[in-house]
Amino acid sequence: DVEPGKFYKGVVTRIEKYGAFINLNEQVRGLLRPRDMISLRAENLNVGDEIIVQAIDVRPEKREIDFKYIP
């Protein structure tokens, strides 16, 4: 289970104008929005990159997770 405030290692699987999709594993995926990329620009991300993200909002009923990148 993903808990708000905890840090996780994930892999960038898709990049859109509104953010990057980060997979923690095959069943868990969330969104890293540009406003939550402190000191990281979306254009510096590539599909396949491994990054550490913090879960900031977890909505299990919608199967949605928002992440924040903190260097």
Rank of each mutant, 00 (worst) to 15 (best):
D36N: 14
S39C: 15
G48I: 01
R35W: 09
E50N: 09
G48R: 02
P71W: 09
E64D: 04
D66Q: 09
L24A: 01
R63F: 13
D49R: 05
E3G: 03
L31D: 03
I56P: 01
D49N: 05
I38L: 12
E43H: 13
R63V: 07
E64F: 13
R35F: 08
Y18V: 08
A42Y: 15
G19C: 10
G10C: 07
N25L: 06
G30P: 03
A55Q: 02
E16G: 14
E50M: 14
I56K: 09
L45R: 01
L45E: 00
I22D: 01
R35P: 07
Q54A: 04
T13M: 07
L31M: 08
I65H: 05
I22G: 00
I51N: 00
E64T: 08
P60D: 06
I56R: 05
R41N: 11
L40F: 09
F7C: 13
Y18L: 06
I70F: 12
A42S: 11
T13N: 02
Q27D: 13
R14L: 07
S39F: 12
D66K: 12
A20I: 15
V2M: 04
Y18K: 06
G5A: 02
E16R: 07
M37H: 04
L24V: 10
L24K: 00
L31Y: 05
R41G: 12
K9Y: 09
F21E: 04
R33W: 06
Y18I: 11
Q27E: 12
D57W: 10
I65M: 04
E26M: 11
V2G: 02
P4A: 12
E64Y: 14
G48Q: 01
E61D: 14
R29D: 06
N46D: 07
N46I: 09
R35M: 09
N25W: 10
E61K: 08
R59E: 03
Y8K: 00
K17N: 09
D57M: 14
V11A: 01
I15F: 03
E61M: 08
I70Y: 12
P4S: 09
N25T: 11
A20W: 13
K9R: 13
V2Y: 08
R35L: 09
R33D: 04
V47T: 04
F67M: 04
R41Q: 11
L32D: 03
G10I: 04
R33L: 09
L32Q: 02
M37Y: 06
G5K: 03
V11M: 07
G19H: 06
A55M: 04
R35G: 12
I70S: 10
N23H: 12
R41F: 10
A20C: 09
E26V: 12
Q27T: 15
P34K: 15
S39H: 14
A20T: 08
I15L: 10
E43L: 13
R33P: 04
A42E: 07
N44E: 15
I65R: 02
E64G: 06
R41I: 11
I22R: 00
F67C: 08
I22V: 12
V53G: 00
T13Q: 04
G48F: 03
G30A: 05
D66W: 13
E64H: 11
F67Q: 05
Y69Q: 07
A55D: 01
E43T: 10
E64C: 12
E61I: 08
E61W: 10
A20F: 13
I52E: 04
K6P: 02
A20E: 01
D57T: 12
P60W: 12
R29F: 13
R14M: 06
E3D: 07
F67H: 02
D57F: 14
L40W: 08
I56Y: 12
Y69W: 10
I15A: 01
F7H: 05
I52G: 01
P60V: 10
R35A: 12
T13D: 04
S39N: 14
L40P: 03
E16M: 13
K68T: 06
F21R: 02
P4G: 05
N46R: 15
P71G: 14
V28K: 02
M37S: 06
P71F: 09
P34Q: 14
D49A: 06
V28S: 05
E16D: 11
F21M: 07
P4H: 06
G30W: 06
I22N: 00
Y69L: 07
V47P: 05
R29W: 15
E16N: 12
Y69T: 03
D57R: 15
V2D: 02
Y69V: 05
K68W: 06
D66P: 02
Q27Y: 14
Q54K: 08
P60I: 09
E16H: 09
L32S: 02
S39A: 13
V28W: 15
V2L: 08
K62M: 11
R33Q: 05
A55L: 06
P71N: 08
D57N: 15
D49V: 04
S39K: 12
D36R: 05
I38R: 10
G19Y: 08
A42M: 15
N23Q: 13
T13P: 00
N23Y: 12
R14C: 08
L31G: 02
D49E: 05
P4R: 13
L45V: 10
A42D: 07
L24H: 01
I38V: 12
D1M: 14
L24P: 00
Y8G: 00
P4W: 06
E43I: 13
S39Q: 13
N25Y: 08
I38F: 09
G19L: 08
L24W: 02
D1T: 14
A55R: 02
R33H: 06
Q27L: 11
I22C: 02
L31N: 04
V53C: 07
F21T: 07
E26W: 14
I52H: 04
K62D: 08
N44W: 14
R33F: 05
P34W: 15
P60E: 08
L45I: 13
I70M: 09
A20S: 04
V11D: 01
V28Q: 08
N23G: 06
R29G: 14
V28I: 14
F67Y: 02
R33T: 05
P34C: 15
I52Y: 10
D1G: 13
R41H: 10
G10W: 15
I52L: 11
A55Y: 03
L32P: 02
K17H: 12
P34M: 14
